[in-house]
């Protein structure tokens, strides 16, 4: 799908009244997170990278989203969300077991490690996990559907949509303090918000999006 918000970049507002110091600090730190993860083996990391790429594909023609770095940090820290399904282990162990099981499932079906599957093959394996149509015994230690809906999906989409590039691609206003918004009614856009392609009658969306500060 073509970019709905051409040239819109949440980061252009970084020094505007829409970002407070704390937000700048937090986002700057997020954009420079390390891309490695001691808590996972090389193989698990490779599997995770492809899982992320398939579940949340990178935006086209935009800065790439470092969802892997964010999720790797969470796994390394074994960071709890405040609850654990009684049939699932803690965060790090759940990911280790789940990634191993995904990789094993790929080898069983395609005789290839998951990380080396093509897109269609990878999606086929992921669909099997989502629909609990997996075949290997090792899923007994990490129930597939629970791993998918309580761990894999929430963790991956949370990491991806924590990135400004993902916000820009969806036309989200992004950080908004202290300025906030003025025009709350439908079809009203504050000049510091994204303009949608085709919505510009007099001024093109591209031109508006280059001046969202």
């Amino acid at each position: 799908m073509p970019d709905r918000f051409p040239d819109y970049d949440v980061l252009a507002k970084r020094t505007s009244p829409s970002w407070n110091d704390k937000t700048r600090e937090v986002i700057d730190q997020r954009l420079s997170m390390p891309e490695s993860c001691d808590a996972l083996t090389e193989q698990q990391q490779a599997t995770l990278r492809l899982v992320i790429d398939r579940v949340v594909p990178q935006p086209e023609d935009r800065a790439s989203v470092n969802a892997f770095a964010l999720l790797a940090a969470k796994i390394a820290a074994n960071k709890s969300d405040g609850f654990r399904h009684h049939r699932l282990p803690p965060v790090r162990e759940a990911w280790q077991r789940g990634l191993d099981a995904i990789d094993a499932e790929a080898k069983a079906h395609f005789d290839t490690p998951f990380a080396q599957l093509d897109a269609a093959q990878a999606d086929a394996i992921l669909s099997m996990v989502q629909q609990e149509k997996v075949t290997l015994a090792q899923w007994a230690d990490i129930p597939a559907e629970l791993f998918w809906s309580w761990r894999l999906i929430p963790d991956i989409v949370s990491a991806y949509y924590a990135h400004p590039s993902a916000w820009s691609a969806m036309g989200f206003g992004g950080p908004a303090s202290p300025r906030g918004y003025v025009r709350l009614q439908k079809n009203r856009r504050d000049p510091w918000e994204a303009a949608e392609a085709d919505s510009g009658i007099l001024i093109s969306a591209k031109r508006k999006n280059r001046h969202v500060v």
Binding site: K22, T23, I27, K79, P175, S177
Partner: peptide, 22 residues
């Protein structure tokens, strides 16, 4: 001075100590 406009960072407000749900 300590709150960001950010869903992820502000998870610091939640009770995230471990609890088991069944």
């Amino acid at each position: 001075e300590e709150f960001a406009s950010d869903e992820t960072h502000q998870e610091k407000l939640f009770w995230t100590d471990q609890r088991i749900v069944d």
